[in-house]
């Protein structure tokens, strides 16, 4: 039963939010959310890659043989990541500096490979594109929320504007790794509460949605 493309898009924002529900793409979520502007930068870059890769893979889904599909996806995704990287470097160098190492790491962002495996190679180009946009928006929004919380609490600013008066000393730990873990955990807890209230069960989480899940059969006992 095919969902309407619009529903597909909305899906990615809330119901199957890649970060908070599927718990994919955790690395950039934690790393790039110390400042709201960096969070948005990462979100947009990842969305761009996701969109391109979903479209490309959906277009090529009948040509790519099953045996080599993972390496093919990887090459395509890596290519798009590099191209997006160039574009960002040329036109938004300060964001490029902020993203640093995490820009090439978008390649191994489970969200992108995961959506390619779970959606793009089974659906039409348009549907794949909508899925990508939805997931991307969900990703970016989540990152924005996390980034905002961490920046406001940790530095007293939002997108660089002073939000909390200077006199109040911010909780700098929020902008540092422990703060990232903490806020992330709290956010997921909040989402759990919302889901529970709606009576919905939590969807497959963590590595389950990862394309390597099939290899993971044994590891699933270990808690994957």
């Amino acid at each position: 039963m095919k969902q309407s493309n619009w529903k597909v898009l909305l899906n990615g924002i809330i119901k199957e939010n890649p970060v908070l529900v599927l718990v994919l793409g955790t690395c950039p979520t934690l790393a790039l959310t110390s400042l709201a502007v960096n969070a948005v930068g990462m979100g947009v870059a990842a969305t761009a890659v996701l969109l391109c890769s979903n479209i490309a893979i959906s277009l090529l889904k009948n040509i790519i043989p099953d045996k080599v599909r993972i390496p093919c996806y990887i090459v395509l995704i890596a290519g798009f990541v590099t191209i997006v990287g160039f574009v960002v470097q040329a036109y938004a160098p300060s964001i490029y500096d902020a993203l640093g190492l995490y820009l090439p790491l978008i390649v191994v962002n489970c969200i992108i490979l995961g959506r390619a495996e779970m959606f793009a190679n089974k659906n039409s180009v348009l549907a794949s594109a909508c899925d990508a946009i939805g997931m991307g928006i969900g990703f970016t929004l989540t990152l924005l929320v996390m980034g905002s919380i961490r920046e406001i609490l940790g530095a007293g600013t939002w997108f660089g504007w002073q939000v909390i008066p200077d006199a109040v000393t911010p909780m700098s730990i929020m902008t540092q790794p422990p703060g990232g873990f903490f806020i992330f955990g709290v956010l997921i807890a909040v989402v759990n509460v919302i889901l529970a209230k709606k009576g919905k069960k939590r969807k497959v989480s963590g590595c389950g949605a990862c394309p390597s899940a099939e290899h993971c059969a044994k590891a699933s006992e270990g808690g994957c």
């Binding site: 110390s34 500096d97 640093g100 940790g154 530095a155 007293g156 600013t157 911010p170 700098s172 540092q176």
Partner: peptide, 8 residues
């Protein structure tokens, strides 16, 4: 090109 802690 710094990655110092915002606020500190």
């Amino acid at each position: 090109d710094h990655s110092e802690t915002p606020g500190f």
